[in-house]
Write a protein that binds this DNA or RNA. Structure first.
Lengths: 204, 204
DNA sequence: AAAAAAACCGACCAAGTGGTCGGTTGACTA
DNA sequence: TAGTCAACCGACCACTTGGTCGGTTTTTTT
C-alpha cells in the first residue's frame, strides 16, 4: 500500500517537470535528458519507471492533463444552474491564471492537439478524447440550461459548445505575449456578447 | 533580371516543399534531409541558397505565408462594403479548402504561432506581425462598416477582430480529423449568429 | 572553345537523441 | 549478519540532426 510511496513520488516529480517542459518547449523539442537534468535523476531512473518517452507522455496526459482540464474547465460549469454565468466565470478564471504564467490547461490541451496532429495518432486520440469530454459536458449543461429557461430553445448546443472551446483555444494562441491582458479582456467582452445572443430573452 | 531564373526556381521548389512538410510534421520534427529527399537535391544545394534552417523558414514565412494569408484571409474582406457578408464568405471559403486537405493559411499561421511560441523569439515576431496585419485590416473594415451602416456603432472593432481570428484558428485546431465537416458547418452557424449580434439592427 | 561563375554533390563532422544494460545503493527481511 | 530487491546510476550504442567543405557539373560569358 505505502511501500511504493517512493515510486509514486519519483514518477510524479518526473511527470510534473515533464509536463512543464513539454508545454514550454514542445514534446519533440524537449529531450528526456532535459527533464532529468533539472531533477538530478538519471536515464536509468527514467527507464525504470517508464517504457519510453511516448509512454511517459501518455501517462502525463492521462494522469495530469485529464484531471486538470476537468477541474478547471469542466467541473466549474458542469450542472450549474445558469450556464451563461458559469461559463463566463470559468473562462475569466482560466484567462486570469494564464496571465500569471501558470499552466492554463485549456490551452495546454490545445497546444498538444496542435503539436501531435498528424504526427502521432495514438496521442492525438487521447487528447481528442479529453476535448470530447469537455464538449459533451458543455452540451449537457447547455441543454439543461434550456429546460431551466436560461438558454433560448432554438440554439444548437453542440455548435455553441465547440464554438466556445474553439474561441477559447484560439484566443490563448494569440495571447502569447505582450498585449495578452488587453486581448483577454476584449475576448471576455465578446464572449459575453455572444452568450447574450443565445440566452433566453431576458426581461430586465 | 532573368539570369537568376534557375536560382529562383530551385529556391521556390525548396520553399514550397518545405512549407508543406513543416506544416504537416512541424518545424522541429522535419529535417532538411526530409525535404531534400523528396526533391532529389543535396545538402550542398540547400546551403548554397540558404544560410540555415531558420533562415530558410523565415524566407518561407516572408515569401509565401505572408502573401497567402493576405490573399486568402485579408484581401477578400478588405474594404468590402458589407463586412458581415464578406467575413462569412471568406471564412466559408477558407474552411472549404481546409476540408479538401489543401493548405489553409489561416490555420498554417495559427499552427506556427503555437509551435514557435516561447521557443524562437525572432520567428514568433514575424508570425505575430502577419497576425497583426490581419487584425488591423479587419478593424479597418469593421470601422468602415459602421459608417456605412452595416455594423452597430457601439461595437468594439478590435475586440471583434481578435475574437473572429481566435475563433477561426481555434476551430481549425479542432477540425483535424473525422468530424471536421460537421464542426466547420456548426462553426459557420455560430459565426453568423455572432455577426448578427454586432450588425446594425436590420429591418427585414 | 576556353574561362569564369553559378549551381549542385555527398562524404564528413560534432552534437545531440531515445534507449540499453551491467552494475551500485540502501532499506527491509529472514 | 547475510540476502533480497526495488530504485537508481551512468557509460555506452546506434542513429539522426544541422551544418561544412573540397570538389564536380552545368550554365554563362568572353
Amino acid at each position: 500500500m505505502d511501500k511504493n510511496l517512493k515510486r509514486m513520488a519519483t514518477m510524479h516529480r518526473m511527470q510534473t517537470k515533464g509536463l512543464e517542459l513539454f508545454y514550454k518547449k514542445g514534446y519533440y523539442n524537449t529531450s528526456i535528458d532535459d527533464i532529468l537534468k533539472e531533477l538530478d535523476l538519471s536515464k536509468g531512473a527514467f527507464y525504470y519507471h517508464f517504457q519510453s518517452k511516448e509512454d511517459f507522455f501518455v501517462s502525463i496526459v492521462q494522469n495530469m492533463v485529464v484531471r486538470k482540464v476537468y477541474n478547471l474547465m469542466i467541473e466549474p460549469i458542469e450542472g450549474k444552474a445558469d450556464p451563461v454565468t458559469a461559463i463566463e466565470r470559468c473562462f475569466e478564471n482560466a484567462l486570469a491564471t494564464a496571465e500569471h504564467n501558470e499552466l492554463d490547461y485549456g490551452f495546454v490541451l490545445g497546444n498538444f492537439i496542435t503539436e501531435f496532429n498528424g504526427r502521432n495518432e495514438e496521442i492525438s486520440k487521447y487528447l481528442k478524447d479529453i476535448y470530447k469530454v469537455w464538449e459533451v459536458n458543455l452540451v449537457t449543461t447547455l441543454q439543461k440550461g434550456k429546460t431551466d429557461g436560461f438558454i433560448a430553445r432554438h440554439v444548437d448546443s453542440e455548435g455553441v459548445a465547440s464554438f466556445l472551446i474553439a474561441s477559447y483555444m484560439g484566443i490563448r494562441v494569440l495571447m502569447v505575449e505582450g498585449n495578452s491582458r488587453m486581448l483577454g479582456y476584449n475576448y471576455m467582452q465578446q464572449i459575453k456578447q455572444y452568450l447574450k445572443s443565445i440566452a433566453e430573452t431576458q426581461l430586465v
